[in-house]
Design a protein around this nucleic acid. Structure first.
Length: 509
RNA sequence: GGUCCGUUCGUCUAGUCAGGUCAGGACGCCAGGUUUUCAUCCUGGUAACACGGGUUCGAAUCCCGUACGGACUACCA
C-alpha cells in the first residue's frame, strides 16, 4: 500500500533519555508509516526551556539509530517542513495565538502564579474544584473581565501575561480515537488552558497542533496520557478552521511491580533497564543501564517492545523489522496497559542469539575473550560458539559456557570431585591418558568410538569414567558433549589436562 | 475530589465488532523423557473470562450497575 498523504511524527522533548514506552510509541509510528507508504517525522519539542537537558537530543537520535527506527524527515534529516525544532519556530506560534485572540477564541490573562494558587486553595477549602473556564474566568484578571483600557495599559506597560484558550461553555465534544472509538466529553469540565506562556513560548498544546497542521501530519499516534487533552486539541483545530488529523492513543507501559506507568525515575530499581541505551545524568553523574549495554540485540529489543500492546492476531512471535512492518496495523493495538516481563525479554534475546551465525557471534565474542586475556584464533572461536550458543542468552554468557575451551582448569569443582572422583578414577584416567595418546585421528567421532570400546571391554561403567574424564577436562560437571570438547582442544592439550588432573586430584584411597 | 480510559492464566496475549469448540498460544513455573554432566531440546502439567444483574435456548462476547486499576487535572511535555 502506498499513500503519500500519510504523515506521522514522534515528538519528544529533550528532557532526558527516552524510556522504552517512548521508544515503543516511536516504533508504532514508524511501523504505521512504513506499512502505509507514508512519512515518519522527528520533531523536537523544546518549548520548556527550563527543562532542557544537554545530550538528551543526541541520545534520542542515537537510540533510534540503534533500534533501526528510521526517520524520513526531521532534525538531522531535514525536509520541506522545517525547522523541526520548536524553539526555532518561535515566530510561527505567536501569529496563531494572535489569530485566536482576534477571532475571540483566546484572551490575555494577567493572573500571577500566586493568585492562581490562592484561588485554588480557597476553592479546595470549600471542597470545590476550581476550573478556570466560563464558570470563573470573569472573576479573574484577564482581558475578558477587565475594562478595555486597563487591558491596554497592562499590555503596554509590559506586565507579564499569558494567552488562554476560551473554552466554549457547555458544549459536548465528540471525538474519535482509532484504538478506543468514540470519546465524548463536555466542555464545562475543561479549563481555559494556557496556550502561550509569559516567556514568549507556546505551550505544548498550541505548538503541537500548529506544527502538526503545518507539517501536514495525518495521524497523531501518541501515549494514552494525552487522551485527556484531546478535546482541547480538537477544539483548537476547529477554532483555527483546520482539518483535524486522526488520533490514536496507545496504552501505557506499566511498572512490573506495584502500580502506575513506567517512568524514567524507575531507572534500575526494577532489575532491568528502562532505557534503550545507557544514560549518564549530566547533573548528578548517575548512571542508568540500557538494553544495548546489557547485551540485548536491537532486533530482540524491538521485537519484544512491538509485542507489548500489539499482536499480529496469529501465533507468531518472532518478527524482524520487515516482518513487523508487514504485519502491523493500528487496529490490532490493545486498549489496556501492559506490564513488561524481563524474563520474556531474555527469551527473545536467546531466540535471536541462536539464530545468528557462528561467525557473527564469534566476532562479537572476541572482545570479551580479550578482556579475559585470552588470545584465540577466530576460526577456533567460531567452532566453540557452535557448541555452546544454544546455552546462552547474551553474548557475554558465552564466556561462562566456554571458558574451559580457552583456559585449563586450575581447580576442580569440590562437589563434583566428591561425587565423581572415586578410588578407581586415578587408575582409569591414567589408562585413558595412554589410550588417547595413541588415538589417531583425534576427531570427536573417532575418540568417542575408541573410548567407549575401551570402557566396555574393561567394564568400567560409562558414568564412572565419563564424569571423571569431564572433571579433568572442564574442571566441573558441565559443558557440551565431551568428545566435541577434546576434539577442539586437540590431543596434546587433552592429555596434558588429564596429567594435570591426576597430579592435582591424586589417588583416592 | 473531578474528568476520561481500562479490566481474559503470575506476565504478554488470542477469542469480543458479526453470542454457540473442554477459553487457544507464548514466557515463567512444575513433572517426565533424552544425555557421560550441566544446559539446550522434546513431551506433559499448572493456571484466567473482576463482581452483580439483565437480554437470550445459549454470554468471555450484547446492555446496565458495582468494584478495582490507571491516566490527566502546571505559565511540563
Amino acid at each position: 500500500m502506498s499513500n503519500k498523504n500519510i504523515r506521522v511524527r514522534f515528538a519528544p522533548s529533550p528532557t532526558g533519555p527516552l524510556h522504552i514506552g517512548g521508544v515503543r510509541t516511536a516504533l508504532y509510528n514508524f511501523l504505521f508509516a512504513r506499512k502505509n507508504g507514508g512519512k515518519f517525522i522527528l520533531r523536537i519539542e523544546d518549548t520548556d526551556q527550563t527543562r532542557f537537558v544537554p545530550g538528551a537530543e543526541d541520545y534520542i537520535i542515537e537510540a533510534f539509530k540503534w533500534c533501526g527506527i528510521e526517520f524520513d524527515e526531521g532534525v538531522t534529516k531535514g525536509g520541506d517542513f522545517g525547522p523541526y525544532t520548536q524553539s526555532e519556530r518561535k515566530a510561527v506560534y505567536k501569529q496563531y495565538a494572535d489569530e485566536l485572540i482576534t477571532s475571540g477564541n483566546a484572551y490575555y490573562a494577567f493572573d500571577t502564579a500566586e493568585q492562581l494558587s490562592e484561588k485554588r486553595a480557597a476553592f479546595e477549602a470549600e471542597k470545590k474544584t476550581f476550573t478556570y473556564n466560563a464558570a470563573e474566568r470573569l472573576n479573574m484578571g484577564n482581558s475578558l473581565s477587565l475594562p478595555k483600557e486597563e487591558v491596554e495599559r497592562l499590555l503596554e506597560s509590559g506586565t507579564p501575561y499569558v494567552i488562554r484558550f476560551k473554552m466554549p461553555e457547555n458544549e459536548q465534544v465528540v471525538m474519535n480515537d482509532l484504538i478506543r472509538g468514540k470519546v465524548e466529553v463536555n466542555t464545562s469540565v475543561l479549563d481555559d488552558k494556557i496556550l502561550f506562556k509569559s516567556d514568549g513560548m507556546p505551550t505544548y498544546h498550541l505548538a503541537n497542533i500548529i506544527d502538526d497542521h503545518l507539517m501536514e501530519i495525518s495521524h497523531v499516534i501518541r501515549g494514552e496520557e494525552w487522551l485527556p487533552s484531546l478535546p482541547l486539541h480538537v477544539l483548537l483545530y476547529r477554532a483555527l478552521g483546520w482539518q483535524e488529523p486522526e488520533f490514536a492513543h496507545l496504552p501505557l507501559l506499566l511498572k512490573p511491580d506495584g502500580h502506575g506507568k513506567l517512568s524514567k525515575r524507575d531507572g534500575d530499581r526494577l532489575g532491568f533497564p528502562v532505557f534503550p541505551l545507557q544514560w549518564k545524568d549530566p547533573k548528578t553523574g548517575e548512571l542508568s543501564s540500557g538494553y544495548r549495554e546489557e547485551g540485548y540485540f536491537p532486533e530482540a529489543f524491538v521485537n519484544m517492545l512491538a509485542l507489548l500492546g500489539w499482536n499480529p492476531g496469529d501465533e507468531r512471535e518472532l518478527f524482524d523489522m520487515e516482518a513487523l512492518i508487514e504485519a502491523f496495523s493500528i487496529e490490532r493495538v490493545n486498549k489496556s496497559g501492559a506490564r513488561f516481563d524481563a524474563e520474556k525479554a531474555k527469551w527473545f534475546n536467546h531466540q535471536y542469539l541462536i539464530k545468528k551465525s557462528n561467525i557473527e557471534l564469534a566476532e562479537a565474542f572476541m572482545p570479551i575473550l580479550k578482556e579475559h586475556h585470552v588470545l584465540a584464533d577466530k576460526e577456533f572461536v567460531t567452532q566453540v560458539i557452535a557448541l555452546v550458543k544454544e546455552r546462552a542468552t547474551f553474548v557475554k554468557d558465552l564466556w561462562d559456557q566456554s571458558f574451559f575451551f580457552f583456559v585449563r582448569p586450575e581447580e576442580y569443582d569440590t562437589k563434583a570431585v566428591k561425587k565423581r572422583w572415586k578410588a578407581a578414577s586415578y587408575q582409569q584416567m591414567t589408562e585413558l591418558k595412554e589410550l588417547l595418546l595413541n588415538t589417531e585421528p583425534f576427531t570427536a567421532s573417532h575418540t568417542e568410538e575408541v573410548v567407549k570400546k575401551w570402557i566396555e571391554e574393561n567394564e568400567y561403567g560409562m558414568g564412572m569414567v565419563m564424569n571423571a574424564f569431564r572433571l579433568l577436562i572442564v574442571g566441573a560437571l558441565k559443558g557440551p558433549h565431551l568428545f566435541d570438547i577434546i576434539a577442539l582442544l586437540g590431543q596434546e592439550e587433552t592429555v596434558e589436562r588429564i596429567s594435570n588432573g591426576l597430579l592435582t586430584l591424586g589417588k583416592k584411597e
